[in-house]
Design a binder for these strands. Structure first.
Lengths: 205, 205
DNA sequence: GAGAAAAAACCGACCAGTTGGTATAGTAAA
DNA sequence: TTTACTATACCAACTGGTCGGTTTTTTCTC
């Protein structure tokens, strides 16, 4: 359903190793082994390690981007749309896809972050193309005079959370993880004093 | 002025390499060379690479911790003291040490972050001791019922910024870097308007 | 459709250089 | 004598990468 062609499989294997065994274990031999492919097979698809990493960046980057684009398209709100969509793609929607498996995978951003760290660790130059891309999104977010900076701060906080996760300072299943998501989401809600926590109260539905 | 004993010199050399040449270049040979020490000398102080990394974590961790403690002691305020001190140690105090060199080094947190990333990259287990330490600080911050979560979010945003810096998505000298600092600091100020432009809009919260 | 040819996909032994780490002989000072 | 190194040689394991060969799939021909 998600990935079948060997390139994607290789990218996923590489990321799995990086996350599980540490970035230094993300060697060509290990990646090939993890993907159950011979080293020659790997090298056929990616002549150099940089090529592998570039492919990872693209693969997981597109994943995260697609996710964000979809969320933004779904969002009917006007203000804080970026931040809300961003948060929704990381923490889920709280109700709807609480049990939905992961064709909408919440780890998309997490994966891309790890891919980027792995990339920089191997070769700082390889993310160059991504830099411009991120800068563009960032500028568009900031172009919103009202909430631009506030949304950027939310973005940064999430990225900080991703860093914590990478460092093992927090795990997705920790209650705090969800609490942080809730707190951030609250910032994207229309300015109200009342907390619309539980709508299941009145007869209105 | 700051460090004289060879262990500290070695730690600094290792970090310098990690930052300048990438994590993969942080090899024992390179570190020894950078510190102008023979490899034997390095191995005398740190029998294994993990020992080196543990020392780095301790060295830069203590650095950042000291910095934070001092800032907090200096801060007369009551609310948001942690976040304010934290921000001040990263972005400076805006006026005072704008030209002060760096015996108060603003890169302290940055350095520790890099050390932690390097540590995890080499061996995910090596940060274990730090985990507890961070958790303790985090819990103390969160124990503040009023502003705990808000301060944690500020912390996370700064860490996100550090990650961006590591990834080359932003540089310290970029105007945006300072802007983010300013925006975050504003959140730690005593209750005023979030937006100084619109004077009134009803209740505040 | 059968079968040959060609191209694409893949294997795994091999290579030169590097890695973390060891060993050892010597030196300078406290 | 102990501590704190320098300098160098060395090691097995591993690194990214090459290469000749094999299998599988597609394409072409009849």
């Amino acid at each position: 359903m998600k990935a079948k062609n060997p390139r994607d499989l290789l990218c996923e294997a590489a990321l799995r190793i990086a996350g599980r065994d540490g970035l230094l274990s993300m060697t060509l031999d290990n990646v090939a082994k993890e993907a159950q492919v011979s080293k020659g097979g790997l090298m056929y698809h990616f002549p150099t390690k940089d090529d592998l990493i570039r492919a990872m960046l693209e693969y997981f980057g597109d994943d995260a981007e697609q996710m964000l684009i979809r969320k933004m398209a779904e969002d009917p709100g006007a203000r804080f749309r970026f931040a809300r969509s961003f948060l929704s793609s990381v923490f889920g929607d709280g109700e709807e896809d609480r049990d939905a498996p992961d064709h909408l995978k919440r780890e998309a951003l997490e994966s891309m972050m790890l891919a980027m760290i792995a990339a920089v660790a191997n070769n700082p130059n390889v993310i160059e193309p991504l830099r411009g891309k991120v800068a563009k999104i960032r500028d568009r977010v900031l172009s919103d005079r009202r909430d631009g900076m506030e949304q950027l701060l939310i973005w940064l906080a999430v990225d900080g959370l991703m860093l914590w996760q990478f460092l093992g300072l927090i795990r997705r299943q920790d209650p705090l993880f969800a609490d942080i998501g809730t707190a951030l989401k609250k910032k994207t809600e229309p300015k109200k004093k009342t907390k619309p926590k539980r709508p299941s109260k009145g007869g209105v539905a």
